[in-house]
Nucleic acid binder design. Sequence first.
DNA 1: TGCTGTGTTCTAGAAACATAGAACATAACC
DNA 2: GGTTATGTTCTATGTTTCTAGAACACAGCA
Lengths: 88, 88
Amino acid sequence: MHALLFALSDPTRLAIARALADGAEHSAGDLAGDIPKSTMSHHLKILREAGLTTTRPEGMRCRVSLRRAELNRRFPGLLAAILKNAEE
Amino acid sequence: MHALLFALSDPTRLAIARALADGAEHSAGDLAGDIPKSTMSHHLKILREAGLTTTRPEGMRCRVSLRRAELNRRFPGLLAAILKNAEE
DNA sequence: TGCTGTGTTCTAGAAACATAGAACATAACC
DNA sequence: GGTTATGTTCTATGTTTCTAGAACACAGCA
């Protein structure tokens, strides 16, 4: 659980998680605003290794999505509580 | 919320929070196992500044306790979800 | 084949963090 | 006052993390 809390303790990564909270797949480029690609790739790697997201290559781009169901099975209510409190 | 998640993303500090989860006041010395005093003081400071704990001096020692009610008001369900998933 | 768009990996510098010894402050007690 | 117990602050050292440029890999397309 440390990795999960650490991953979401960064403002940039929490923003990414919130953007993914709609359940849809987003490309890395869409998620990055003016953040450089390499920085974005770094944050996505941390989120992925914490088990928060999955990255699926599709042609030229990456489809990133939240692993909501798996996380809820492993840490019931945790992701929901964090995302809910991150709203404002 | 970043400070809170970051504070609890450290194993040592999460262990402290779990020890405090019984609602009782603990002294810093009791919470520290073989952790040096200065290290313990550092971790307690981070927890305190994240709003997770209060430290009340009482004679020679410190009485540390979780700010459960305040946290639950500010971040409903969050601390409970973290502590529950930290059990095991 | 050459060009463009999308990400990853490599690399490096700056900033933040963890750890812990040493000195200090304070309280209790003789 | 002197001693002991409990924490904090200071200082130093090593590690991790964040950021971002540069080079690279690969898919798509003319």
